[in-house]
Design a protein around this nucleic acid. Sequence first.
DNA 1: ACCTGAACACCGTTCAAGT
DNA 2: ACCTGAACACCGTTCAAGT
Lengths: 227, 227
Amino acid sequence: MVKKSPSGPRREESLSRERIIDASIALLDEAGESGLTFRALSQKLATGPGAIYWHVANKSELVTAACDTIVARAMSAQLADATPEATIRAIALGMFDAIDAHPWVGSALAHAPGQLPAVRILERIGQQIRMLGVPRDDEWTTVSALLSYILGVGGQNAANAQFAQTEGLNRPAFLESVANTWSELDPAEYPFARSVATQLSGHDDRADFLTGIDLILKGIGKSYAQQ
Amino acid sequence: MVKKSPSGPRREESLSRERIIDASIALLDEAGESGLTFRALSQKLATGPGAIYWHVANKSELVTAACDTIVARAMSAQLADATPEATIRAIALGMFDAIDAHPWVGSALAHAPGQLPAVRILERIGQQIRMLGVPRDDEWTTVSALLSYILGVGGQNAANAQFAQTEGLNRPAFLESVANTWSELDPAEYPFARSVATQLSGHDDRADFLTGIDLILKGIGKSYAQQ
DNA sequence: ACCTGAACACCGTTCAAGT
DNA sequence: ACCTGAACACCGTTCAAGT
């Protein structure tokens, strides 16, 4: 088949959906959620704000597309010969690390339920759940619990990172300031929060996240004993 | 002690932090997240935008305060003579219903981790976890898993409601449109999402949410068998 | 002490006009 | 078909000026 390509040599600099998304990711990584602006973006791409609308419907679609690029990358990592549980843990950790590296992905995911990025995660987890002996009727609920937990932790991590950035603090300093606030709460009303405040700064978020995943997996195992 | 009150009869109409927060809640309930504007708010309160800044530092603080009012209300419900598990379920359901009634609370919670609203939930759950025989060193991780799950589901529900409202759809219609999108995905790449799409619209979000809570509680029970 | 409202420095999005 | 960039209709926030 003869390729009837339109004409001329493709200019590397010409605008395209892909270039716009790549520039958006760079902007979001550099300056956070509030850094992505059609004006900043068009400047980075050496064009006008209106040009971007030729390739992208609106800002919401742009953020979702940027998010999807990161999620697709994280979900493409495969590991063979692992148990379903181990694979689910790996998928979850992959998302944790992706959100850690790109905090804006956490809030983008939270704001676009049912969209492609979330479906990618759902699909990979779902395929593993099928192997765990969960009855068909309970598949959705089970997968949805895991997905919600992942998105919940991701969203909180994203908010922490954004808050710390806004305040000009690094993560340890931010956690310490939260711990301080909690220590000053009314002892009669907030005994638990106060006592747990001291543990806060020392903890490993990644390990905590994984413990939560294991808790849910244990619950699934207890509900649907497999042979 | 003699009360040296400033002067004159308090005008019912005078501005106050409380009146501002109440008006904000009303605005958020009526028009969603994007409905809360300093201009709309000042119009509702028959004042200027600048006046609000005398009582409230900025928009972020205002939203958090509005969120806290709803959360405090939801957390104040007490039930006596219940097992820790039953109490945790009740706390979780209370938050689910609060977010269902005020979707903006879901995203407000997600954006303000470590702030008072989240700590209220953390505290109530934490007190129950103490009664479940979870070792001190694992308290934070356990409570944090439950809280993340609640915030995750809440955030997704909020996003669903907001999306549906933006699109001018009711919830069933919105879920159906999501299910339709999923059914059209590539069968080779998305077998699970496609097969689960049909189950989507029929499901009870509240029941699913509770199943997730039970999954985590089962996991906790399995980890720390109590006598 | 508290309120007013114009002004500032931004936004996302549109659209006539260009090539 | 694709790009330009001025213009529109908004924002949150500030601040001199009032009472």
